[in-house]
Amino acid sequence: MADFLIAILQFILIITIAPLISGIIHKTKSLLRGSKGASIFQPYYNILKLFQKEVVLSKDASWISIIAPYIVAAVPIVLAGFLPVFNSHTLFSFNSDIIALVYTLALGTFFLALYGFDQASSFGGLGSSREMMVASLAEPALMMVIFTFALQSNSTNISTIFEHMHKGEFLQFPVSSIFALMALYFVIIAESGRIPIDNPETHLELTMIHEAMILDASGRSLALLEIGSFIKTAIFLTLFSNIFIPFGLYEANSFLAIFLGILIYIIKMSLLAVIIAIGEMSLAKLRYFRIPDAMMFGFVLSLISMIVYRL
């Protein structure tokens, strides 16, 4: 029973913390720019606000437009139940396979891209085309990194991989991890649509990728799509932090351990958010046709990681 409660707690933690990451990134960027910036809780207000608004739907839209936002939001929420945060008991532990995680995420992307097409607008298709291309090119690097860690921990089960990573300390990390870390960072940037791959803050035809797909969305549809992309980022960052910053996965069930676990998790996520924000501030957005180069670079890194680990 206690395990179940912990699982529920972890599940809710990922979901609730997700918009905060976006808020912290935004706040950090504002501070770095020298402005005051909105509160870090602004994304929560935005979502609440969007839920209060009506949906404006194209007359050409079909039922895809109605179900797609729910699916796009539900996929990352289900996956949040796969991931251990501070304890290896997860809500959907029976299924927490890392390959399944990647492919289930792809299901969300699939419907998101269909949503882009459904309104018969030219921007949506444009966004879908770009998003599918970026997501496709990020896939090999992601799979290679996953392979490296699955082989190290001799399992594709996420909990087992995390436990394995937490057992060894930093110093026992093979050198190959450093490459894997960089490769995974590239993948995360690509998948969550941040600078230098995509800029979530503008709506410019020439550059937008993710925003183009959801340009016609409004009201609760937009809110659901936003929730989906927030949680997706949170999932990737959780994955990243639990593999590469192996602190805070406690086996104990005491309240103190749980409290510490939550605290460490929030600190780790905020730290990563700040790092991403600094990265965004110091880099210019890549031209769209430079993205394959960046993805290829990520792939080569993951490949080296694999080879260095092997040989």
Partner: peptide, 21 residues
């Protein structure tokens, strides 16, 4: 172009790692 260069480079790296074995 850069993408192809990176592909070639990755194979070069694999080869050099295997050779040095």
């Amino acid at each position: 172009n850069i993408t192809n260069s990176l592909m070639i480079i990755s194979s070069i790296i694999i080869i050099s790692f295997i050779l040095t074995r």
